[in-house]
Design a protein around this nucleic acid. Structure first.
Length: 459
RNA sequence: UCCCUAGUAGCUCAGUCGGCAGAGCAAGUGGCUGUUAACCACUGGGUCCGCGGUUCAAAUCCGUGCUAGGGAGCCA
């Protein structure tokens, strides 16, 4: 007989004479006559209550079951006379698969996120982390569903890349050379390395995605991204996942509309398909979350230019630690003011000065700004960063010269502006930051199964 | 990397002015109960983050290192 998962059993309309469930015991309460067990199999947040009668032949063994132990139960699914659950299982047979010894670190009580991070291999067995990783899985699916419905092609861009300066941050080197021989030689000899030149882990699939947008029309990438920045914050990890749509024949406004549509779609999907898990976060993690999610779905996001934002910040009369200067990048406190205090909803910031943005962003008619867009959301800051791309070859080359970039190493990128170039746009959305937004989890390390941060690669 | 704060039992934390190391939960044992963060009693459990210093005496004061959290920078 096949085992049935707990989410299926709890959704049952009628009692069932014979079922088999397998899972891990969250807690057990004993009495003389019988033993109550809360069983969880990861299929949903809720446990199912098992009643094991003391007349069962192996009741001595059953008595030894501890929190964390694995069991297989055969029994009857019946309505529960007790409070707190509709269904329970009266066990006819309890097979102990394995007993968790007394030093099992997870207790039947609330643990701090900091402690659970030190046992990342076990934390998914708690209510909160189980919920997080079910939502993570569901949202990854929702991204593919959204793009599939819209006719986008899913593109696998390289993880190992030869581009050495995409301008998105410090990169992790990839090499097949023996470190001790490199040390002996005193320097890296890239010519003798695997690729015959310097290689790194990708910091963005954008440049590759642009090439395919100019072939397949609308594409998106969704995969791991690596940044070797020594940043120690609750919003950064060294390895994270990013969604990067890239659309041909699309300008900045189309890009912004697409971003809003995506975020609304994903939020709705979470509420509809993860309602039980989301409720854990709205009830226990973040009391404001319900409101945040409703705003994400129902409201039109704010949309202002960089110049307007600067003016607005100056006029606010707020005493910022860093002075607001047109031409400088906005500081965290400025972004937070805009998203959290002023608009109180997501805000698109467009048309930044070209001096603070990368070479590939399209220069506006004013010659001073570029068609960039960032989406700032309350608490997290930048969720999305993107732009309309510079499709005019001569301007692109000019900008590369100004920024001292080697045109030779970008020959293939420049080729795309030589052959059938068209206006196109795209952006990157941090997948983990999306999960933080949708769950109210305040540290990015807690939405990654095994987070990688400076000085931390255990598990 | 910089600034701030913290590190005491398995977990969460208290520890006053420098003077015998504590609580709740967890664990173990026993009891009780259609229980549900079950309950009651008893028992065990400590490198007070490491190193150095001041002192008759340091969890407590000073220096330094490490780790964590919050903030900043960088960014998604």
């Amino acid at each position: 007989m096949k085992r049935v998962k707990i989410n299926t059993l709890l959704a049952s309309d009628e009692q069932i004479e014979k079922v088999i469930v397998k899972g891990w015991v969250r807690t057990k309460r004993d009495s003389k006559e019988f033993s109550f067990m809360e069983l969880n199999d990861g299929s949903c947040l809720k446990n199912i209550q098992i009643i094991a009668d003391s007349k069962l032949e192996n009741y001595v063994e059953i008595s030894s079951i501890t929190t964390g132990s694995a069991v297989s139960i055969e029994g009857r699914l019946v309505e529960s006379p007790g409070k707190g659950q509709k269904w329970e299982i009266h066990a006819d047979k309890v097979d102990v698969i394995s007993i968790a010894p007394e030093d099992y670190p997870l207790q039947k009580k609330r643990h701090s996120d900091e402690f659970l991070r030190t046992i990342a291999h076990l934390r998914a067995r708690t209510n909160k982390y189980g919920a997080i990783f079910r939502i993570r899985s569901e949202m990854a699916f929702a991204i593919h569903k959204f793009y599939n419905e819209k006719g986008f092609r899913y593109l696998h861009t390289p993880i190992i890349t030869g581009s050495d300066c995409e301008g998105a941050g410090e990169m992790f080197r990839v090499t097949a050379l023996d470190p001790s021989s490199v040390a002996k030689a005193g320097k890296m000899d890239f010519h003798s390395d695997f690729f015959g030149q310097e290689a790194n882990l990708t910091v963005s699939g954008q440049l590759s995605a642009e090439m395919f947008a100019l072939a397949l029309g609308d594409v998106y990438t969704f995969g791991p991204t690596f940044r070797a920045e020594n940043s120690n914050t609750s919003r950064h990890v060294a390895e994270f996942w990013m969604v990067e749509p890239e659309m041909a024949f699309c300008d900045l406004n189309g890009n912004i509309d697409h971003a809003q549509e995506l975020l609304k779609y994903l939020t709705k999907h979470a509420i509809t398909n993860c309602s039980e898990d989301i409720a854990l976060f709205t009830d226990f993690v973040d009391k404001e979350l319900r409101k945040v999610l409703e705003t994400l779905i129902n409201e039109e996001y704010a949309k202002i230019s960089y110049d307007e934002a600067v003016e607005l910040l100056i006029k606010s009369g707020k005493n910022f630690e860093y002075k607001v200067v047109n031409g400088n990048d906005l500081q965290s406190e400025h972004e937070r003011f805009l998203a959290e205090e002023y608009f109180k909803k997501p805000v698109f910031l467009m048309n930044y000065p070209k001096t603070i943005k990368p070479f590939y962003m399209r220069v506006n008619d004013d010659g001073r700004t570029v068609a960039a867009v960032d989406l700032l959301v309350p608490r997290i800051g930048e969720l999305i960063g993107g732009s309309q791309r510079e499709e005019r070859l001569y301007i692109l080359e000019e900008r590369m010269e100004q920024m001292n970039l080697s045109k030779e190493s970008y020959w293939w990128y420049l080729d795309s502006r030589r052959f059938g170039t068209v206006p196109h746009s795209g952006f990157g959305m941090g997948f983990e930051r999306l999960l933080m937004l949708l769950t109210g989890v305040s540290n990015i390390r807690d939405v990654v199964p095994f987070p990688r941060t400076p000085g931390n690669i255990d598990f």
